[in-house]
Nucleic acid binder design. Structure first.
Lengths: 241, 241
DNA sequence: CTAAAAGTGGAAGACATTTTCAACTTCCGA
DNA sequence: TCGGAAGTTGAAAATGTCTTCCACTTTTAG
Protein backbone atom coordinates (compact mmCIF):
# COMPACT_ATOMS: atom_id res chain seq x y z
CA UNK A 1 0.00 0.00 0.00
CA UNK A 2 1.32 3.41 -0.96
CA UNK A 3 1.85 5.54 2.11
CA UNK A 4 0.01 8.60 0.91
CA UNK A 5 0.47 10.62 4.08
CA UNK A 6 4.00 9.52 4.73
CA UNK A 7 3.03 9.22 8.36
CA UNK A 8 4.84 6.06 9.30
CA UNK A 9 8.50 6.91 8.83
CA UNK A 10 9.87 9.29 11.44
CA UNK A 11 11.77 12.40 10.52
CA UNK A 12 15.32 13.06 11.70
CA UNK A 13 15.35 14.56 15.14
CA UNK A 14 15.06 18.31 15.26
CA UNK A 15 15.05 18.88 18.98
CA UNK A 16 17.08 21.69 20.45
CA UNK A 17 20.67 20.64 20.81
CA UNK A 18 22.85 23.33 22.35
CA UNK A 19 24.06 26.84 21.79
CA UNK A 20 22.35 28.73 24.55
CA UNK A 21 23.00 32.31 23.56
CA UNK A 22 25.80 32.56 21.03
CA UNK A 23 23.96 34.75 18.58
CA UNK A 24 20.42 36.02 18.83
CA UNK A 25 18.47 39.10 17.90
CA UNK A 26 19.95 40.86 20.92
CA UNK A 27 23.36 39.26 20.50
CA UNK A 28 24.82 42.75 20.45
CA UNK A 29 23.76 43.67 23.99
CA UNK A 30 26.23 45.32 26.35
CA UNK A 31 28.62 42.77 27.91
CA UNK A 32 27.66 41.46 31.33
CA UNK A 33 29.81 40.83 34.34
CA UNK A 34 31.08 37.27 34.42
CA UNK A 35 28.79 36.14 37.23
CA UNK A 36 25.85 37.87 35.60
CA UNK A 37 26.50 36.10 32.33
CA UNK A 38 26.64 32.77 34.13
CA UNK A 39 23.34 33.44 35.87
CA UNK A 40 21.78 34.53 32.63
CA UNK A 41 22.66 31.23 31.04
CA UNK A 42 21.31 29.29 33.98
CA UNK A 43 18.05 31.21 33.82
CA UNK A 44 17.70 30.51 30.12
CA UNK A 45 18.50 26.85 30.58
CA UNK A 46 15.97 26.52 33.39
CA UNK A 47 13.33 28.45 31.50
CA UNK A 48 13.92 26.38 28.40
CA UNK A 49 13.35 23.14 30.24
CA UNK A 50 10.37 24.29 32.24
CA UNK A 51 8.65 26.03 29.36
CA UNK A 52 9.16 23.13 27.01
CA UNK A 53 7.33 20.89 29.44
CA UNK A 54 4.74 23.13 31.04
CA UNK A 55 4.12 25.91 28.55
CA UNK A 56 4.53 29.66 28.59
CA UNK A 57 2.79 30.09 31.93
CA UNK A 58 5.49 28.96 34.33
CA UNK A 59 6.08 31.58 37.00
CA UNK A 60 9.24 33.58 37.32
CA UNK A 61 9.66 32.31 40.85
CA UNK A 62 9.73 28.76 39.62
CA UNK A 63 12.27 29.52 36.94
CA UNK A 64 14.36 31.25 39.60
CA UNK A 65 14.22 28.24 41.90
CA UNK A 66 15.18 25.87 39.11
CA UNK A 67 18.06 28.12 38.06
CA UNK A 68 19.15 28.48 41.69
CA UNK A 69 18.93 32.23 41.51
CA UNK A 70 16.78 34.88 43.16
CA UNK A 71 13.55 36.04 41.55
CA UNK A 72 14.94 39.53 41.36
CA UNK A 73 17.72 38.34 39.11
CA UNK A 74 15.28 36.91 36.64
CA UNK A 75 13.36 40.19 36.58
CA UNK A 76 16.53 42.20 36.21
CA UNK A 77 17.65 40.16 33.22
CA UNK A 78 14.25 39.73 31.57
CA UNK A 79 11.99 42.56 32.64
CA UNK A 80 9.19 41.29 30.43
CA UNK A 81 8.15 37.83 29.46
CA UNK A 82 8.54 38.70 25.83
CA UNK A 83 12.20 39.50 26.34
CA UNK A 84 12.63 36.02 27.71
CA UNK A 85 10.62 34.37 24.95
CA UNK A 86 12.63 36.28 22.39
CA UNK A 87 15.84 34.68 23.65
CA UNK A 88 14.25 31.29 23.96
CA UNK A 89 12.55 31.03 20.61
CA UNK A 90 14.64 33.14 18.29
CA UNK A 91 16.61 30.28 16.84
CA UNK A 92 13.75 27.83 17.00
CA UNK A 93 12.17 29.79 14.22
CA UNK A 94 14.95 28.74 11.91
CA UNK A 95 14.00 25.14 12.58
CA UNK A 96 10.47 25.75 11.37
CA UNK A 97 11.66 27.67 8.33
CA UNK A 98 14.05 24.87 7.55
CA UNK A 99 11.25 22.33 7.73
CA UNK A 100 9.19 24.35 5.29
CA UNK A 101 12.06 24.91 2.89
CA UNK A 102 12.97 21.27 2.91
CA UNK A 103 9.36 20.35 2.27
CA UNK A 104 9.40 22.57 -0.81
CA UNK A 105 12.18 20.48 -2.31
CA UNK A 106 10.24 17.23 -2.07
CA UNK A 107 9.48 15.85 -5.51
CA UNK A 108 5.76 15.23 -5.04
CA UNK A 109 4.29 18.56 -3.81
CA UNK A 110 1.50 16.81 -1.95
CA UNK A 111 4.01 14.71 -0.08
CA UNK A 112 5.87 17.93 0.58
CA UNK A 113 2.87 19.51 2.24
CA UNK A 114 2.23 16.39 4.28
CA UNK A 115 5.84 16.29 5.35
CA UNK A 116 5.76 19.92 6.38
CA UNK A 117 2.81 19.39 8.65
CA UNK A 118 4.16 16.19 10.06
CA UNK A 119 7.58 17.62 10.92
CA UNK A 120 5.98 20.69 12.35
CA UNK A 121 4.15 18.57 14.87
CA UNK A 122 7.18 16.47 15.60
CA UNK A 123 8.98 19.67 16.47
CA UNK A 124 6.14 21.07 18.52
CA UNK A 125 5.52 17.82 20.36
CA UNK A 126 8.84 18.29 22.04
CA UNK A 127 8.21 21.85 23.13
CA UNK A 128 4.90 23.01 24.46
CA UNK A 129 6.17 26.51 24.93
CA UNK A 130 7.12 26.80 21.28
CA UNK A 131 3.69 25.61 20.27
CA UNK A 132 1.95 28.13 22.49
CA UNK A 133 4.24 30.85 21.28
CA UNK A 134 3.70 30.17 17.61
CA UNK A 135 -0.06 29.93 18.05
CA UNK A 136 -0.89 32.44 20.74
CA UNK A 137 1.59 35.20 20.02
CA UNK A 138 1.06 34.96 16.27
CA UNK A 139 1.42 38.61 15.58
CA UNK A 140 1.39 40.46 18.87
CA UNK A 141 5.13 40.56 19.45
CA UNK A 142 8.16 41.50 17.41
CA UNK A 143 9.36 37.92 17.18
CA UNK A 144 5.87 36.64 16.49
CA UNK A 145 5.58 38.99 13.58
CA UNK A 146 8.94 37.94 12.25
CA UNK A 147 7.83 34.32 12.52
CA UNK A 148 4.75 34.95 10.48
CA UNK A 149 6.44 36.87 7.70
CA UNK A 150 9.08 34.20 7.33
CA UNK A 151 6.90 31.12 7.47
CA UNK A 152 3.70 32.20 5.81
CA UNK A 153 5.02 32.70 2.27
CA UNK A 154 6.57 29.26 2.37
CA UNK A 155 3.26 27.70 3.35
CA UNK A 156 1.48 29.60 0.62
CA UNK A 157 3.95 28.18 -1.84
CA UNK A 158 3.53 24.65 -0.50
CA UNK A 159 -0.21 24.99 -0.91
CA UNK A 160 0.05 26.38 -4.42
CA UNK A 161 2.35 23.58 -5.54
CA UNK A 162 0.15 20.88 -4.12
CA UNK A 163 -2.85 22.41 -5.83
CA UNK A 164 -1.02 22.75 -9.14
CA UNK A 165 -0.18 19.07 -8.90
CA UNK A 166 -3.89 18.37 -8.60
CA UNK A 167 -3.70 16.68 -5.24
CA UNK A 168 -4.80 19.42 -2.86
CA UNK A 169 -8.31 20.74 -3.23
CA UNK A 170 -8.50 24.10 -4.89
CA UNK A 171 -10.88 25.60 -2.32
CA UNK A 172 -8.30 25.47 0.43
CA UNK A 173 -5.95 28.31 1.26
CA UNK A 174 -2.85 29.01 3.24
CA UNK A 175 -4.87 30.17 6.22
CA UNK A 176 -6.73 26.87 6.31
CA UNK A 177 -3.42 25.21 6.96
CA UNK A 178 -2.80 27.55 9.86
CA UNK A 179 -6.17 26.76 11.38
CA UNK A 180 -5.60 23.06 11.01
CA UNK A 181 -2.18 23.30 12.60
CA UNK A 182 -3.80 25.07 15.52
CA UNK A 183 -6.57 22.48 15.84
CA UNK A 184 -4.15 19.63 15.98
CA UNK A 185 -1.91 21.61 18.29
CA UNK A 186 -4.67 21.51 20.87
CA UNK A 187 -4.81 17.77 20.55
CA UNK A 188 -1.08 17.48 21.11
CA UNK A 189 -1.35 19.47 24.31
CA UNK A 190 -4.08 17.26 25.64
CA UNK A 191 -2.76 13.92 24.49
CA UNK A 192 0.97 14.31 24.96
CA UNK A 193 1.34 12.56 28.31
CA UNK A 194 -1.17 9.89 27.40
CA UNK A 195 -0.44 8.92 23.82
CA UNK A 196 2.16 11.25 22.34
CA UNK A 197 1.75 10.07 18.76
CA UNK A 198 -2.01 10.31 18.62
CA UNK A 199 -1.93 13.44 16.51
CA UNK A 200 -0.69 11.38 13.57
CA UNK A 201 -4.05 9.69 13.39
CA UNK A 202 -6.06 12.87 13.17
CA UNK A 203 -3.59 14.57 10.90
CA UNK A 204 -4.11 11.64 8.54
CA UNK A 205 -7.87 12.07 8.69
CA UNK A 206 -7.63 15.77 7.96
CA UNK A 207 -5.13 15.32 5.15
CA UNK A 208 -7.39 12.68 3.69
CA UNK A 209 -10.20 15.19 3.73
CA UNK A 210 -8.09 17.83 2.05
CA UNK A 211 -7.34 15.77 -1.02
CA UNK A 212 -9.03 16.30 -4.31
CA UNK A 213 -10.73 13.05 -4.96
CA UNK A 214 -14.03 13.27 -3.15
CA UNK A 215 -16.58 15.52 -1.59
CA UNK A 216 -18.56 18.66 -2.23
CA UNK A 217 -17.35 22.18 -1.93
CA UNK A 218 -16.41 23.16 1.59
CA UNK A 219 -18.68 25.78 3.12
CA UNK A 220 -17.36 29.27 3.84
CA UNK A 221 -14.03 30.74 2.89
CA UNK A 222 -10.52 30.44 4.26
CA UNK A 223 -10.24 33.20 6.86
CA UNK A 224 -8.46 36.33 5.68
CA UNK A 225 -5.38 37.70 7.39
CA UNK A 226 -6.97 39.89 10.07
CA UNK A 227 -9.43 37.16 10.94
CA UNK A 228 -6.69 34.59 11.15
CA UNK A 229 -4.62 36.82 13.41
CA UNK A 230 -7.51 37.37 15.76
CA UNK A 231 -8.42 33.72 15.86
CA UNK A 232 -4.91 32.53 16.53
CA UNK A 233 -4.35 35.22 19.13
CA UNK A 234 -7.38 33.97 21.03
CA UNK A 235 -6.65 30.30 20.66
CA UNK A 236 -4.26 29.81 23.51
CA UNK A 237 -5.26 32.59 25.83
CA UNK A 238 -2.12 33.26 27.83
CA UNK A 239 -2.91 33.85 31.48
CA UNK A 240 0.06 36.09 31.94
CA UNK A 241 0.76 38.96 29.57
CA UNK B 1 -24.55 19.13 -6.23
CA UNK B 2 -25.53 16.73 -3.47
CA UNK B 3 -24.94 18.27 -0.08
CA UNK B 4 -23.08 15.38 1.44
CA UNK B 5 -22.39 17.03 4.74
CA UNK B 6 -25.76 18.69 5.05
CA UNK B 7 -23.92 21.72 6.30
CA UNK B 8 -25.86 24.45 4.64
CA UNK B 9 -29.32 24.16 6.10
CA UNK B 10 -29.54 25.26 9.70
CA UNK B 11 -31.09 23.14 12.41
CA UNK B 12 -34.05 24.31 14.45
CA UNK B 13 -32.94 26.38 17.38
CA UNK B 14 -32.05 24.44 20.47
CA UNK B 15 -30.94 27.24 22.73
CA UNK B 16 -32.01 27.24 26.33
CA UNK B 17 -35.52 28.56 26.59
CA UNK B 18 -36.78 28.66 30.17
CA UNK B 19 -37.45 26.49 33.17
CA UNK B 20 -34.82 27.64 35.60
CA UNK B 21 -35.03 24.98 38.28
CA UNK B 22 -38.31 23.07 38.09
CA UNK B 23 -36.81 19.62 38.23
CA UNK B 24 -33.18 18.67 38.35
CA UNK B 25 -30.99 16.03 39.86
CA UNK B 26 -31.31 17.77 43.20
CA UNK B 27 -34.96 18.62 42.60
CA UNK B 28 -35.71 16.80 45.82
CA UNK B 29 -33.74 19.15 48.03
CA UNK B 30 -35.31 20.53 51.20
CA UNK B 31 -37.66 23.43 50.41
CA UNK B 32 -36.21 26.89 50.78
CA UNK B 33 -37.69 29.96 52.27
CA UNK B 34 -39.43 32.07 49.66
CA UNK B 35 -36.77 34.78 49.54
CA UNK B 36 -34.05 32.17 49.43
CA UNK B 37 -35.71 30.44 46.54
CA UNK B 38 -35.95 33.73 44.70
CA UNK B 39 -32.29 34.49 45.25
CA UNK B 40 -31.37 31.02 44.15
CA UNK B 41 -33.14 31.56 40.87
CA UNK B 42 -31.50 34.89 40.33
CA UNK B 43 -28.09 33.40 40.98
CA UNK B 44 -28.75 30.62 38.49
CA UNK B 45 -30.02 33.03 35.87
CA UNK B 46 -27.02 35.30 36.29
CA UNK B 47 -24.61 32.40 36.26
CA UNK B 48 -26.24 30.95 33.18
CA UNK B 49 -25.84 34.15 31.22
CA UNK B 50 -22.32 34.87 32.35
CA UNK B 51 -21.07 31.33 31.92
CA UNK B 52 -22.62 30.95 28.50
CA UNK B 53 -20.66 33.93 27.30
CA UNK B 54 -17.43 33.81 29.26
CA UNK B 55 -16.95 30.18 30.19
CA UNK B 56 -16.70 28.30 33.45
CA UNK B 57 -14.17 30.66 34.94
CA UNK B 58 -16.36 33.60 35.93
CA UNK B 59 -15.84 34.53 39.55
CA UNK B 60 -18.45 34.14 42.27
CA UNK B 61 -18.22 37.83 42.99
CA UNK B 62 -19.22 38.67 39.47
CA UNK B 63 -22.14 36.28 39.52
CA UNK B 64 -23.22 37.82 42.81
CA UNK B 65 -23.06 41.32 41.40
CA UNK B 66 -25.03 40.34 38.32
CA UNK B 67 -27.64 38.58 40.46
CA UNK B 68 -27.79 41.58 42.79
CA UNK B 69 -27.00 39.42 45.77
CA UNK B 70 -24.13 39.19 48.27
CA UNK B 71 -21.21 36.90 47.54
CA UNK B 72 -21.95 35.01 50.70
CA UNK B 73 -25.34 34.05 49.38
CA UNK B 74 -23.81 32.44 46.35
CA UNK B 75 -21.46 30.48 48.56
CA UNK B 76 -24.24 29.39 50.88
CA UNK B 77 -26.32 28.10 48.02
CA UNK B 78 -23.54 26.60 45.94
CA UNK B 79 -20.62 25.78 48.19
CA UNK B 80 -18.68 24.25 45.31
CA UNK B 81 -18.50 25.15 41.68
CA UNK B 82 -19.62 21.69 40.75
CA UNK B 83 -22.85 22.11 42.67
CA UNK B 84 -23.54 25.17 40.55
CA UNK B 85 -22.56 23.48 37.31
CA UNK B 86 -24.78 20.55 38.18
CA UNK B 87 -27.81 22.81 38.33
CA UNK B 88 -26.80 24.72 35.24
CA UNK B 89 -26.06 21.85 32.94
CA UNK B 90 -28.32 19.08 34.14
CA UNK B 91 -31.06 19.70 31.63
CA UNK B 92 -28.70 20.75 28.86
CA UNK B 93 -27.65 17.15 28.74
CA UNK B 94 -31.08 16.22 27.53
CA UNK B 95 -30.59 18.53 24.58
CA UNK B 96 -27.48 16.66 23.55
CA UNK B 97 -29.14 13.30 24.03
CA UNK B 98 -32.06 14.48 22.00
CA UNK B 99 -29.77 15.55 19.19
CA UNK B 100 -28.17 12.13 19.15
CA UNK B 101 -31.47 10.27 19.25
CA UNK B 102 -32.88 12.34 16.48
CA UNK B 103 -29.78 11.73 14.41
CA UNK B 104 -30.33 8.01 14.81
CA UNK B 105 -33.69 8.26 13.10
CA UNK B 106 -32.28 9.88 9.97
CA UNK B 107 -32.72 7.63 6.98
CA UNK B 108 -29.14 7.77 5.67
CA UNK B 109 -26.91 6.82 8.62
CA UNK B 110 -24.01 8.86 7.28
CA UNK B 111 -26.21 11.92 7.11
CA UNK B 112 -27.31 11.05 10.62
CA UNK B 113 -23.77 11.15 11.92
CA UNK B 114 -23.08 14.40 10.10
CA UNK B 115 -26.24 15.90 11.51
CA UNK B 116 -25.32 14.85 15.02
CA UNK B 117 -21.97 16.56 14.84
CA UNK B 118 -23.37 19.64 13.21
CA UNK B 119 -26.14 20.14 15.74
CA UNK B 120 -23.78 19.48 18.56
CA UNK B 121 -21.69 22.43 17.47
CA UNK B 122 -24.69 24.60 16.90
CA UNK B 123 -25.67 23.91 20.48
CA UNK B 124 -22.20 24.49 21.85
CA UNK B 125 -21.66 27.65 19.83
CA UNK B 126 -24.32 29.28 21.92
CA UNK B 127 -22.87 28.21 25.27
CA UNK B 128 -19.20 28.32 25.98
CA UNK B 129 -19.70 27.03 29.49
CA UNK B 130 -21.47 23.94 28.23
CA UNK B 131 -18.65 23.23 25.83
CA UNK B 132 -16.01 23.59 28.51
CA UNK B 133 -18.02 21.44 30.83
CA UNK B 134 -18.56 18.64 28.36
CA UNK B 135 -14.91 18.64 27.36
CA UNK B 136 -13.03 19.46 30.49
CA UNK B 137 -15.12 17.73 33.10
CA UNK B 138 -15.65 14.67 30.96
CA UNK B 139 -15.59 12.19 33.76
CA UNK B 140 -14.37 13.95 36.86
CA UNK B 141 -17.75 14.88 38.26
CA UNK B 142 -21.01 13.10 38.91
CA UNK B 143 -22.81 14.94 36.15
CA UNK B 144 -19.90 14.58 33.78
CA UNK B 145 -20.01 10.85 34.27
CA UNK B 146 -23.73 10.76 33.70
CA UNK B 147 -23.24 12.73 30.51
CA UNK B 148 -20.79 10.22 29.20
CA UNK B 149 -22.85 7.17 29.99
CA UNK B 150 -25.89 8.64 28.33
CA UNK B 151 -24.30 10.04 25.21
CA UNK B 152 -21.57 7.60 24.43
CA UNK B 153 -23.72 4.58 23.54
CA UNK B 154 -25.71 6.69 21.15
CA UNK B 155 -22.56 7.83 19.39
CA UNK B 156 -21.32 4.28 19.21
CA UNK B 157 -24.55 3.35 17.51
CA UNK B 158 -24.34 6.25 15.09
CA UNK B 159 -20.84 5.18 14.16
CA UNK B 160 -21.83 1.54 13.72
CA UNK B 161 -24.75 2.43 11.47
CA UNK B 162 -22.70 4.72 9.29
CA UNK B 163 -20.09 2.03 8.94
CA UNK B 164 -22.66 -0.65 8.14
CA UNK B 165 -23.97 1.61 5.40
CA UNK B 166 -20.48 1.67 3.95
CA UNK B 167 -20.01 5.40 4.18
CA UNK B 168 -17.88 5.77 7.30
CA UNK B 169 -14.44 4.23 7.27
CA UNK B 170 -14.20 1.05 9.26
CA UNK B 171 -11.02 2.02 11.08
CA UNK B 172 -12.74 4.81 12.99
CA UNK B 173 -14.30 4.36 16.41
CA UNK B 174 -16.60 6.13 18.79
CA UNK B 175 -13.69 7.70 20.60
CA UNK B 176 -12.42 9.22 17.38
CA UNK B 177 -15.65 11.16 17.19
CA UNK B 178 -15.10 12.45 20.70
CA UNK B 179 -11.59 13.61 19.85
CA UNK B 180 -12.81 15.33 16.72
CA UNK B 181 -15.59 17.06 18.61
CA UNK B 182 -13.00 18.34 21.03
CA UNK B 183 -10.67 19.53 18.29
CA UNK B 184 -13.36 21.53 16.62
CA UNK B 185 -14.56 22.78 19.98
CA UNK B 186 -11.27 24.57 20.37
CA UNK B 187 -11.80 26.24 17.05
CA UNK B 188 -15.23 27.44 18.08
CA UNK B 189 -13.81 29.07 21.19
CA UNK B 190 -11.20 30.90 19.21
CA UNK B 191 -13.28 31.87 16.22
CA UNK B 192 -16.65 32.64 17.80
CA UNK B 193 -16.34 36.42 18.01
CA UNK B 194 -14.61 36.66 14.66
CA UNK B 195 -16.42 34.28 12.37
CA UNK B 196 -18.94 32.23 14.31
CA UNK B 197 -19.69 29.77 11.53
CA UNK B 198 -16.13 28.96 10.65
CA UNK B 199 -16.28 25.56 12.30
CA UNK B 200 -18.59 24.37 9.51
CA UNK B 201 -15.70 24.59 7.09
CA UNK B 202 -13.36 22.42 9.10
CA UNK B 203 -16.07 20.01 10.11
CA UNK B 204 -16.66 19.51 6.40
CA UNK B 205 -12.99 18.82 5.82
CA UNK B 206 -12.85 16.30 8.62
CA UNK B 207 -16.05 14.58 7.59
CA UNK B 208 -14.71 14.39 4.08
CA UNK B 209 -11.64 12.67 5.43
CA UNK B 210 -13.69 10.20 7.41
CA UNK B 211 -15.56 8.84 4.44
CA UNK B 212 -14.75 5.54 2.87
CA UNK B 213 -13.80 6.42 -0.61
CA UNK B 214 -10.13 7.32 -0.49
CA UNK B 215 -6.92 7.06 1.45
CA UNK B 216 -4.75 4.56 3.25
CA UNK B 217 -5.28 3.15 6.66
CA UNK B 218 -5.08 5.73 9.42
CA UNK B 219 -2.11 5.30 11.71
CA UNK B 220 -2.62 4.27 15.31
CA UNK B 221 -5.81 3.22 17.01
CA UNK B 222 -8.82 5.05 18.37
CA UNK B 223 -7.94 5.82 21.99
CA UNK B 224 -9.46 3.46 24.53
CA UNK B 225 -11.71 4.63 27.33
CA UNK B 226 -9.14 5.50 29.99
CA UNK B 227 -6.99 7.28 27.45
CA UNK B 228 -9.94 9.23 26.15
CA UNK B 229 -10.94 10.25 29.66
CA UNK B 230 -7.48 11.51 30.44
CA UNK B 231 -7.16 13.36 27.18
CA UNK B 232 -10.50 15.09 27.47
CA UNK B 233 -9.89 15.96 31.10
CA UNK B 234 -6.71 17.74 30.12
CA UNK B 235 -8.10 19.51 27.08
CA UNK B 236 -9.51 22.61 28.65
CA UNK B 237 -7.50 22.99 31.80
CA UNK B 238 -9.86 24.88 34.11
CA UNK B 239 -8.10 27.59 36.09
CA UNK B 240 -10.43 27.22 39.02
CA UNK B 241 -11.22 23.83 40.49
C1' DC C 1 44.55 46.55 47.28
C1' DT C 2 40.70 49.56 47.00
C1' DA C 3 36.70 51.89 45.56
C1' DA C 4 33.05 52.19 42.60
C1' DA C 5 30.05 49.87 39.64
C1' DA C 6 27.38 46.01 38.73
C1' DG C 7 24.79 42.44 40.32
C1' DT C 8 22.14 39.64 43.83
C1' DG C 9 18.56 37.61 46.95
C1' DG C 10 14.45 37.28 48.92
C1' DA C 11 11.38 39.74 52.18
C1' DA C 12 7.85 43.00 51.65
C1' DG C 13 4.36 45.29 49.08
C1' DA C 14 0.86 45.26 45.47
C1' DC C 15 -2.83 42.85 43.45
C1' DA C 16 -6.54 39.86 42.38
C1' DT C 17 -9.42 36.42 43.81
C1' DT C 18 -11.59 33.06 47.01
C1' DT C 19 -13.70 32.04 51.31
C1' DT C 20 -15.37 32.92 55.91
C1' DC C 21 -18.11 34.98 59.51
C1' DA C 22 -20.48 37.80 62.86
C1' DA C 23 -23.85 41.31 62.89
C1' DC C 24 -28.08 42.17 60.81
C1' DT C 25 -32.67 41.11 58.27
C1' DT C 26 -36.49 38.39 56.67
C1' DC C 27 -39.77 34.93 56.88
C1' DC C 28 -42.72 31.35 58.95
C1' DG C 29 -45.64 29.02 62.21
C1' DA C 30 -48.10 29.21 66.41
C1' DT D 1 -48.07 39.57 66.98
C1' DC D 2 -43.77 37.41 68.24
C1' DG D 3 -39.71 34.25 68.85
C1' DG D 4 -36.43 32.13 66.64
C1' DA D 5 -34.69 29.63 62.68
C1' DA D 6 -33.19 30.58 58.18
C1' DG D 7 -31.09 33.70 55.26
C1' DT D 8 -28.27 37.73 53.85
C1' DT D 9 -24.54 40.80 53.64
C1' DG D 10 -20.07 42.80 52.77
C1' DA D 11 -15.97 43.66 55.13
C1' DA D 12 -12.06 41.15 56.32
C1' DA D 13 -8.98 37.19 56.39
C1' DA D 14 -6.78 33.83 53.64
C1' DT D 15 -4.59 32.60 49.50
C1' DG D 16 -1.69 32.67 45.60
C1' DT D 17 0.64 35.35 42.30
C1' DC D 18 3.52 39.12 40.39
C1' DT D 19 6.80 42.88 41.02
C1' DT D 20 9.75 46.06 43.41
C1' DC D 21 13.34 47.46 46.27
C1' DC D 22 17.48 47.93 48.98
C1' DA D 23 21.03 46.16 52.11
C1' DC D 24 24.44 43.20 50.87
C1' DT D 25 28.04 40.65 47.81
C1' DT D 26 30.92 40.12 43.79
C1' DT D 27 33.51 41.79 40.05
C1' DT D 28 36.38 44.86 37.68
C1' DA D 29 39.44 48.69 36.63
C1' DG D 30 42.93 51.41 38.12
Amino acid sequence: MEDVFNLVERSPDLRYTGRVSSFTSSGDRAPLRRDAERNRSRILAAARTLIAVRGLDVGYDEIAREADVGVGTVYRRFPTRDALFQELFYDRLDAVVEIAEEALTVEDPWQGLCQFMRRNFELQSADRGLREFLLGRADSTELGHRARTRIQPLVTELVAHAQAAGRLRADLGQSDIAIILAMLGGLIDAALPVEPELWRRYLAIVLNGMQCEAGDEFPGQPPDQPQLDQILARWVLPRRA
